[in-house]
Computed example of a mutant assay.
Amino acid sequence: MNTNAPSVFRTPAWFYFAVAFAISWIIWLFPVLATRGVLTLSRTTQLLCLFAGSFGPFIGAFIAVYRDGSWGAVKEFFGRSLRYRIGPVYLLAALLLMPVLAGIASWWLAQRGGPPYAMLVPLAHFPLLYLELLFIGGSVNEEFGWSYAIDRLQQGRRLLPAAVILGVIWGCWHIPLFFIAGLTQSFMPFWAFLTFTVAFRVLIVWGYENNRKSILLALLFHTASNFSFNMYNLIDRTPQRDERGFIAYCLLTLFVAIAVALTARCYRRQATLLARNEGSR
């Protein structure tokens, strides 16, 4: 395990996940009930609930890190978001990989009767949209929490299984959003979304582990993925619900994640060390 992470965790993993899920799901329950006609909430109130609930992982990480090591641990952990010394390959992957995969999926869909291949956002709007997605689009809200979670899940298990487990948990964390009419998730098949969160988390952890546990890199990965959904028409919000574009995007991400899992040094190294440890017993 990277020496920059705490060697002792005083907070049980279940406690962190319970806090993160409880905060998000309780707050998101209000827009879920509103969209089902049980409650009457204004559109603005529903959006505020969605935004506030998305900070469940962030708040959970803050509480857990403070329990682990008080303010010194909090300062060290959140300071990882400023670790800007990132390898060129990882930086390019964080910024470009997901938009490229989205572009391929969009082109593939256009060849098979889907919407014409085109970028939905003018180049001039890229910087502002990227910053908006970085700070209020889910990246900051989530990635501090999932970074703490991967550090915690590595205790007693190999990195790849830990990344896969976190990908499943991450996907399940979104479940209430699938029941809110009009949200992006309500137009996605859950099995494909779960495939995506597992595969994408393997990619994020690959970059995170190989760059001194840089939360900044995780933020860039997450933002690029959200940017892709704004950049290309991968989600069909019409009654026809053509899911082919999104499924193609998920499968492309899975293909790349498998290639990384099989070749990345951080994943192979831990597997080799575990085999050696078992052989020496």
Rank of each mutant, 00 (worst) to 15 (best):
S81E: 01
S81A: 15
S81D: 00
S81F: 14
S81L: 13
S81W: 07
L82P: 00
R83D: 00
R83H: 13
Y84F: 14
R85F: 00
R85D: 12
R85N: 12
R85Q: 12
P88D: 08
P88C: 02
V89N: 02
V89M: 09
Y90L: 02
Y90M: 06
Y90A: 15
L91E: 07
L91H: 04
L92G: 09
A93K: 01
A93M: 15
A93L: 13
A93P: 01
A93N: 07
A93H: 01
A93Y: 05
A93D: 03
A94R: 03
A94T: 08
A94Y: 07
L95H: 01
L95V: 13
L96I: 05
L97F: 04
M98F: 11
M98H: 07
M98D: 02
M98E: 06
P99V: 01
P99A: 05
P99S: 02
V100P: 08
L101I: 04
L101E: 12
A102K: 01
A102Q: 00
G103E: 03
G103P: 05
G103Y: 05
G103T: 00
I104Q: 03
A105C: 04
A105I: 04
A105E: 05
A105R: 06
S106T: 00
S106A: 15
S106C: 04
W108H: 08
W108D: 04
W108R: 02
W108G: 02
L109D: 03
A110L: 01
A110Y: 01
A110P: 00
Q111P: 00
R112I: 02
R112M: 09
G113V: 02
G114N: 07
P115V: 06
P115C: 06
P116F: 00
Y117A: 12
Y117W: 13
Y117T: 03
A118R: 15
A118C: 07
M119D: 00
M119A: 14
M119R: 11
L120S: 06
V121I: 15
P122A: 13
P122T: 08
L123G: 15
A124D: 06
A124R: 14
A124N: 08
H125R: 12
H125T: 09
H125V: 02
H125L: 11
F126V: 15
F126Q: 04
F126G: 08
F126Y: 15
P127F: 09
P127C: 10
P127E: 08
L128H: 08
L128F: 11
L129D: 06
Y130E: 06
Y130N: 05
L131T: 08
L133C: 13
L133H: 08
L133R: 15
L134R: 05
L134E: 09
F135S: 12
I136T: 15
I136G: 02
G137K: 10
G137D: 07
G137Y: 10
G138T: 12
G138C: 11
G138Y: 09
S139D: 11
S139G: 13
V140E: 10
V140L: 15
V140F: 14
V140N: 09
V140T: 10
V140W: 13
V140D: 13
N141I: 02
E142M: 11
E142V: 09
E143K: 10
E143P: 10
E143M: 14
F144Q: 07
F144R: 10
F144P: 03
G145I: 10
